[in-house]
């Protein structure tokens, strides 16, 4: 019973914060809402037993990527009024709400019809070791290509963001 409670609590706040990310007008508020969303999502992963992924999610996502968003907002140093997008017209909110609710309902009905059944016992044993073993044996080439991808991202972003001489 406590699992249901924990999950529905997390899911509620995650939905709230992801809607906040989209509808809020001040970008810093959106960034903080994104932080809360990612933090709770890491809670869902840890709740499912994927503990290494939860730690990575907090370190890389919450600790680095959203900090980069915050840095860009602080660097651009726009005055809040300019940054604040105009008050969205009401129909935008309505459309947003209707679209989300509609698709969520359709999706849920469709997924329910699959009756895929219960997720296995919601806690995998400590699997960091197995994840590492599989990553370095079966996924050897993607692991090397990831480093090339990171190299390209470094070169690309430094070239774009540097002040033109």
């Amino acid at each position: 019973m406590s699992d249901q409670l924990v999950f529905w609590g997390l899911a509620g706040f995650i939905t709230l914060s992801s809607v906040a990310v989209v509808t809020v007008r001040n970008p810093v508020t959106a960034a903080v809402a994104l932080v809360i969303n990612l933090f709770l999502l890491a809670g869902v992963y840890a709740f499912q037993g994927a503990d290494f992924v939860a730690a990575i999610q907090i370190i890389v996502y919450t600790g680095a990527i959203v900090v980069l968003f915050l840095f860009v907002i602080m660097i651009l140093n726009l005055d809040p009024e300019h940054l604040r997008s105009p008050r969205p017209r009401i129909w935008e909110h309505l459309v947003l709400g209707v679209v989300i609710a509609g698709f969520a309902y359709i999706g849920y009905r469709f997924l329910d019809s699959l009756d895929v059944g219960k997720v296995a016992s919601n806690r995998l044993p400590d699997n960091t070791y197995d994840v590492a073993m599989i990553l370095f044996s079966n996924y050897l080439w993607p692991f090397e290509i990831v480093s090339i991808l990171i190299l390209l991202a470094i070169v690309g972003s430094v070239a774009i963001a540097k002040k033109p001489k």
């Binding site: 680095a64 900090v67 980069l68 660097i75 991202a153 430094v158 963001a161 002040k163």
Partner: peptide
Amino acid sequence: RERMSVKFYLTAILFIL
């Protein structure tokens, strides 16, 4: 509202990667 230097941004990018 002068803009801050872009160095902070480059540090943050390299931090992620």
